[in-house]
Each structure stands twice: as C-alpha cells, then as structure tokens.
C-alpha cells in the first residue's frame, strides 16, 4: 500500500465527496418533493395528472439511472434544453428517486386506512386538512423505513454521475487509476469515502426509524 499516494490524494477525494454529497442531497430533496407531489395527485385522484404519474413511475423505476442521465445530459440539448453536468446529476437523481419516494409514501398512506380519513371527515375537516393533519403525519411515520432505504439507495446511485463527466468520487478514482495505475489505493479510498458518507446516514436513519416507531401505534 502506497501511503504517501493516499495522503496526497485525500484532499482530491474530499473535494469529490463534497460534490457527491451536494448533488446527492439536492437530488434526494427534489425526489422527496416530487414523490410527495405524485402521491398527492394519486391520492386525490386528479384525473389526467394521475395517469401521467403512473406512466412516470413505471418509466422511472424500470430504466437505469445511467440511461436516464444520458437522456438528460445528451438528449435534452438536442431539443434545446441546456443542462450543465451538476444540474443534470440533480435532475437524474430526482427523476429516479421521485418514483421510489412516491411508492414509499403511497404504502404509508394506504396503511393509515380509510377509517382515519372518515374519522377526520366526520369532524368536519376538509380534504386538504385531513391530508395535512391526519393522513400525512401518520403516513410519513409508517413509511420511514422505506424512506431511509431509498435515501441510502439513491446516495449509492450517485456513483454513476461520472458518466456525465461530473467530478464525483467515482470519477476521481477512475482518473487516478488512469494516471498512476495505483488501483488498490484509489479503490480503497473510494470505498472509505463512500462509507464515510453513507454510514452516518444509515445510523441517523435507524435512529429516525426508532423514534417514529410509535407509528406502529397499537390499539
């Protein structure tokens, strides 16, 4: 193991890690909002949009992120929409993650059940109030485990960003291997940095899950 190589290149990885985390979390944030929007459309049975959501979910879940990124990065400019690599990364991740988040929220909403909805309606709450105060808080708590799993899954998916020439962790590792042939060291650093990003998220996730377990309620 070439320790000098490792120590000189750590700053390079750190920079790449910051970029990965930045794009990763921005993409996930948009994915959450997109998923929530999709679920509200499905829940409220909004006519045409509901169909669009169904098509989007199938499209997004059944195509690889790499291909989605290619489409956004190389395809969209052809129809006049310019994207830089970072925006493309965020958009790609959001496109992929939105459907996963929507499905997680949907299972949560379905688990809350019609009786809770009726209970809220019988108190004279409007539809929006029912969604906001009764359904969503419970649905969030119920879907927390799926939600955490999705966040981790999406963060891992960031490793394909290098394909659209984003200087992320994967890109940095491949670059160094190409330049110096220090394969072992480069890949070891890559693993360590991904762990540094993901382990805290995992731990935070399990704390969140435990805190929200009261959503299991019991009668």
């Amino acid at each position: 193991m070439d320790w000098e190589f490792i120590s000189t290149n750590i700053p390079l990885y750190r920079e790449a890690a910051v970029l990965t985390v930045k794009i990763g979390f921005a993409g996930i944030l948009v994915a959450i909002l997109l998923g929530l929007l999709c679920e509200i459309i499905v829940y409220c049975r909004i006519p045409v949009l509901r169909r669009a959501v169904a098509v989007y979910i199938e499209l997004s879940r059944n195509t690889p992120l790499l291909i989605q990124l290619f489409f956004i990065y190389y395809g969209l400019p052809k129809i006049g929409i310019r994207t830089d690599a970072q925006a493309c990364g965020v958009a790609g991740l959001a496109f992929l993650g939105g459907s996963y988040m929507a499905e997680a929220f949907r299972s949560g909403v379905e688990a809350v059940g019609a009786a809770q909805e009726e209970s809220a309606y019988s108190l004279g709450l409007s539809r929006m109030q029912t969604i906001r105060y009764v359904i969503l808080p419970q649905a969030f708590a119920i879907s927390a485990p799926a939600f955490v799993a999705n966040v981790i899954f999406l963060l891992k998916e960031t490793s394909v960003f290098s394909a659209v020439s984003l200087m992320d962790l994967m890109f940095t590792a491949k670059d160094l291997i190409g330049l110096y042939y220090n394969t072992t060291e480069s890949l070891a650093l890559l693993v360590v940095f991904y762990l540094l990003i993901l382990l805290p998220v995992s731990l935070l996730g399990s704390v969140l899950e435990r805190r929200l377990r009261y959503a299991g309620f019991g009668t």
């Binding site: 809770q116 009764v134 808080p137 419970q138 708590a141």
Partner: peptide, 9 residues
C-alpha cells in the same frame, strides 16, 4: 365510532 378512531399520532 365503534373503534374510536382517535388520531394515534
């Protein structure tokens, strides 16, 4: 309601 249907959260 028969099953109370309080809001558990």
């Amino acid at each position: 309601f028969q099953n109370y249907e309080l809001f558990p959260h």
